[in-house]
Design a binder for these strands. Sequence first.
DNA 1: ATTTATGTACGATTTTCGTCGTACATCGTA
DNA 2: TACGATGTACGACGAAAATCGTACATAAAT
Lengths: 109, 109
Amino acid sequence: MSPRKFFHPDTAELTLHRVLFALSDPTRLAVVSDLMRDGERASGDLLAESVPRSTMTHHLKILREAGVTRTRPEGMRCLISLRREDVDARFPGLLDAILAHGGAEASAP
Amino acid sequence: MSPRKFFHPDTAELTLHRVLFALSDPTRLAVVSDLMRDGERASGDLLAESVPRSTMTHHLKILREAGVTRTRPEGMRCLISLRREDVDARFPGLLDAILAHGGAEASAP
DNA sequence: ATTTATGTACGATTTTCGTCGTACATCGTA
DNA sequence: TACGATGTACGACGAAAATCGTACATAAAT
């Protein structure tokens, strides 16, 4: 019964092209937009109506392995949060620029 | 002998995920980094040593159709420049954030 | 008009990505 | 332990992307 493990890259290992790629998909952009507005959220509540679970798992894995989000197991659920400070430390202003654009594209793909 | 035509999207039609996708490739990121530092450049001078011409044409087309760059024919050559004001108008701070990161990844892929 | 330099168009190939169903694992609770 | 709820792993499928060679187009000069 080992607690579930999730790989998270170190802050120093984030690469710009990987982060940009993680953000280049409409579904993932919508997830990040939600996280920016609402803070930490359960993965099951993210776009739950429009995206199957296995598809959401896939997108969350890409965001997590790019260093954009953090996944924290909490009982049966997974809580997802933005790695705001880490991304800001490595790419200052990047998330602000995306936040500034707001959720204009943050609807379903 | 009509002068060569290149499609450029209107500023209002730029989408965030398309711009981010265009910037999510190391080769294209290196091109943009060069353009930020040196201004307008001939396409043949961009990474000429490491990327075949037809491949570079492909990348420049993606950048252009995403609205990130402008291509201007000048005699036999093509001059490439950043659409700085247009991208800034639509996504303020985005290019600054990438410029701030400098050319740290701007070497060959 | 021929030649040379530059860049595009097209096609073929390989790789990667996005989607999602199914089976499995984990967690809390009855 | 058995059950129900949540999330992951794996595999398959089709769509899209990255690479690059070859053929063609454009422009300038001879």
